[in-house]
């Protein structure tokens, strides 16, 4: 089936199998490998991307469903060589270790902050409930999201336009 979509600001058109999952389209067809596959059951969130600015698990979206829409992955969050405030906060707070959940976690956090720019710790935890991390115990991930909320709202950091 023919699909046309915008991925990280670039127009893409392809002929894909109807059953092709968005995460596999991104990884195998476009070579965008930040989004990972960590489970088979839409549980872990390692594949999270933004679809029209809202976080979705790309293992549970068919590529054909994303046709005509805008997809943002961790690769497209900031210009090459720069970090988005959420990415910068993850680094500053040591919010990643092995990195496997990280792109998905960053996209989920970005989606969360778009909906709720000033979350409490409890709201951050609830907002990330669908994204699993085995390394950090979530402690520094939560710190990172709260830090990012602070910098994004005050504009203290030179904020990169995210492609939402």
């Amino acid at each position: 089936m023919k699909v046309r979509l915008t991925v990280n600001g670039q127009d893409r058109s392809d002929d894909v199998e109807p059953r092709l999952l968005l995460v596999h389209y991104l990884r195998q067809h476009l070579g965008l490998r930040a989004a990972n596959v960590g489970c088979d059951t839409t549980s872990c969130g390692a594949c999270t991307v933004l679809l029209n600015g809202k976080s979705v698990k790309s293992c549970t979206v068919l590529t054909v469903q994303a046709s005509g829409q805008e997809v943002t992955t961790a690769e497209g969050l900031a210009p090459e060589g720069d970090l988005h405030p959420v990415q910068r906060a993850f680094r500053a707070e040591h919010g990643l270790q092995c990195g496997f959940c990280t792109p998905g976690m960053v996209m989920a956090a970005t989606g969360l902050l778009a909906e709720n720019p000033h979350p409490t710790e409890e709201e951050v935890r609830a907002g990330l409930e669908g994204n699993f991390c085995r390394c950090t115990g979530y402690h520094n991930i939560v710190r990172a999201v709260l830090t990012a909320a602070g910098t994004m709202s005050t504009g203290a950091t030179t904020s990169t336009e995210s492609a939402q």
Binding site: R27, G31, R33, A34, A35, N36, V37, A74, E75, L77, A78, L83, Q87, F90, R91, A92, H94, L96, C98, G99, F100, T102, P103, V106
Partner: peptide, 21 residues
């Protein structure tokens, strides 16, 4: 000291075995 490995993990993602080209 902040981790030198992080920028890659945060943007293009790690290069895990399934990512190796």
């Amino acid at each position: 000291v902040l981790r030198t490995e992080d920028p890659g993990f945060l943007t293009r993602g790690g290069v895990y075995t399934d990512d190796v080209e």
